[in-house]
């Protein structure tokens, strides 16, 4: 088991490196010049050259990459072109705000989606399965920016029970989870964010549970005299690795922040930061954000792999 863990961790290193290469080069593949947005339109070629040199944009790409990577591993992501603040601060603040949303959206989505899927899978083909599957399709199909706007119209504009946007009076720096005046700002974005993962998870869990239920060993369990509840426990454990793979992905997405949802609710999270960085062509911020989010994904997948192997010993041999 320990050897398996070490092997998985070693595998994660080249993936992380590859991710950093892609992050770095993506920005250069995209059309446009980062300096266009910060330089006045009438700047002379000489000025442009000086600024380019100052940012290191005049060096060959592999050099730029190595310099960038060297700084990154020491925690220096450079300085934002738009705000002139360290990228590390920008990214970590935004990530903390997104994590605040994820902290509520993840349990909500995982619990609801899993329970829905487990029930539907256990009663595959019956009316409750059809209801849940139908609801899951709706959840997956609703564009979440649209859902966000509708929720704002209903609960903020019509009934005025919840705030529409932002993080409230204390802002992002002193957000207090113990005060309703702060927490109420979480409600609508969390619900909006959770909707798609609920649908995806419900469908995955349903499929996994229904498939396991059809396997031969379930009949053995019944022949042992186990109750339906005890049989279901076996089925759920067998279905868990499949479900966890999807949970890992969804966890990554939620922690990555949704550009659309955070824009609708003007929530200063990583998705919001990313969209600002794209609009401003703020290359250092863009690189830093994408890199950090990618590493979150890589780590999540690693953790999921290890948890899966803990449940199903057959995975360890692969």
């Amino acid at each position: 088991m320990i050897r398996y863990i070490l092997r998985r961790i070693v595998y994660a290193i080249p993936i992380a490196f590859g991710v950093s290469v892609v992050c770095f080069s993506l920005v250069y593949i995209a059309p446009g010049d980062p300096l266009q947005t910060v330089m006045p339109p009438d700047a002379t070629a000489e000025t442009i050259a000086i600024v380019k040199h100052a940012y290191g944009f005049d060096r060959p790409l592999p050099m730029q990459f190595l310099i960038w990577l060297g700084r990154v591993v020491t925690g220096d992501f450079g300085v934002s072109i738009a705000t002139r603040r360290p990228v590390f601060l920008e990214v970590s603040e935004a990530l903390a705000n997104t994590a605040l949303l994820a902290m509520f959206a993840v349990p909500l989505a995982f619990f609801t989606g899993y329970v829905m899927g487990a029930v539907a899978g256990s009663f595959a083909g019956r009316w409750i399965d059809r209801v849940v599957t139908g609801a899951a399709v709706v959840g997956v199909s609703l564009p979440n920016y649209w859902l966000g706007i509708v929720l704002v119209i209903v609960f903020a504009v019509e009934y005025m029970v919840l705030p529409a946007t932002g993080m409230g009076p204390s802002g992002s720096t002193a957000f207090n989870l113990a005060q309703w005046s702060n927490v109420q700002f979480l409600v609508l974005p969390v619900i909006t964010l959770a909707m798609i993962p609920i649908g995806i998870l419900a469908r995955t869990t349903r499929a996994a549970v229904a498939e396991v239920r059809n396997q031969d060993f379930v009949q053995t369990l019944r022949a042992k005299g186990l109750s339906e509840w005890a049989v279901t426990r076996h089925v759920l454990k067998n279905a868990m690795p499949q479900v966890m793979a999807v949970m890992g992905l969804q966890f990554g997405y939620l922690l990555g922040g949704s550009i659309l949802v955070e824009t609708v609710f003007t929530w200063p999270g990583s998705g919001f930061l990313l969209s600002k960085a794209i609009i401003n062509r703020d290359v250092p911020v863009l690189q830093g954000t994408i890199l950090v989010l990618s590493l979150v994904f890589v780590t999540t997948n690693l953790v999921v792999d290890l948890l899966q192997s803990l449940i199903d010993p057959r995975i360890r041999r692969a």
Binding site: Q215, D216, F217, Q219, T220, L221, H234, K237, N238, I311, D312, P313, R314
Partner: peptide
Amino acid sequence: MTALDPVY
């Protein structure tokens, strides 16, 4: 092969 629960 298939009549026993693989994860216990």
